[in-house]
């Protein structure tokens, strides 16, 4: 099925409203970070203007931004690794092994994700206080892995059951252990699923606000808490908030660019012959 030229033209045409809708608010945030507040509300709106760097210098001088950036990065990377390791193992366990109540247990995993966080935060605080983990990376990390894990498990089940069983059986016959099959056969074929699970685990931690606010004091404070602090009693500091938001977006973009080459079709093509 060769795509035709008019099909390409139609696709390009559809992309215009899609990208405009997606990118306009981002553009507005990005430009707000280079504007004075007066210019943000100018009528007619300023599309072209002389950029100012004041918002960035204020954020970087008034707040130990890089300290909080490090906190956010360490916790987010830890969350991603933790939920990928546990999620891959459990996802494969659910996808390939049946036991009594396996469906009920799997639903219960999802139920763990349904509880309102507002309700969990107080008892979780008391639990971490008991364990001496308040205001530490570990305390937030444990919470975020538990947030990200149910989705990782359910998503990866979906990708793992689609891996052709014949390939796995062939590897077993060739003497591969179950863990070997998972690592050498299943993971490479289901790579797009792992990429998506990784991106969302990272984002769960990166954007989370409530738990970060309640559980971290000084040492483990993350960026969303810092940014929310710019929403002062006297009203939001739009310029500084936007500048911080732009800087907070950059690591995500780098991560996605690094991971997206695994988001490709075709690894199963030809895996099973006949």
């Amino acid at each position: 099925m060769k795509p035709t030229r008019w099909q390409a033209a139609l696709t390009a045409l559809l992309l215009v409203p899609v990208l405009a809708w997606t990118l306009f608010p981002i553009y507005w945030i990005a430009t707000a970070s280079f504007k004075t507040e007066l210019s943000l509300y100018a009528r007619p709106p300023h599309w072209l203007f002389t950029p100012i760097a004041d918002n960035y210098t204020r954020v970087l001088t008034n707040i130990p931004f890089f300290q909080y950036l490090k906190n956010s990065l360490v916790i987010a990377i830890g969350t991603t690794i933790g939920s990928l390791v546990l999620g891959t193992l459990a996802g494969y366990g659910f996808a390939r092994f049946r036991f009594r109540l396996s469906e009920a247990v799997r639903f219960l995993v999802l139920v763990m994700r349904m509880a309102p966080r507002m309700v969990l935060v107080v008892p979780y605080y008391l639990m971490m206080q008991r364990l001496g983990l308040l205001d530490t990376y570990t305390g937030l990390l444990i919470a975020y892995v538990s947030f990200a894990l149910p989705f990782s498990i359910w998503l990866l089940i979906g990708f793992f059951v689609d891996v052709p069983l014949e390939v796995e059986e062939a590897a077993m016959i060739d003497g591969c252990s179950p863990l070997g099959v998972l690592l050498r056969i299943v993971i490479p074929i289901a790579a797009p699923g792992l990429v998506v699970a990784a991106i969302f685990a990272f984002l769960v931690s990166w954007n989370e606000f409530l738990f970060a606010l309640i559980l971290s004091g000084v040492e483990a404070k993350t960026l969303p808490v810092v940014i929310a602090g710019l929403n002062t009693d006297a009203g939001p500091l739009y310029g500084e908030m936007s500048a911080a938001a732009v800087m907070v977006m950059l690591p995500n973009i780098v991560m996605t660019l690094a991971l997206q080459r695994y988001l490709v079709r075709g690894l199963t093509l030809g895996a099973v012959k006949g």
Partner: peptide, 28 residues
């Protein structure tokens, strides 16, 4: 289509905006 590849990341950008900031900007 090859031209779609580099555009995928652009489509994901709203996910990367801290929710409180995104909502504040929409209020503006």
């Amino acid at each position: 289509f090859r031209f779609l590849r580099p555009l995928r990341v652009l489509l994901l950008l709203p996910l990367f905006v801290v929710p409180v900031v995104g909502a504040t900007m929409w209020r503006v």
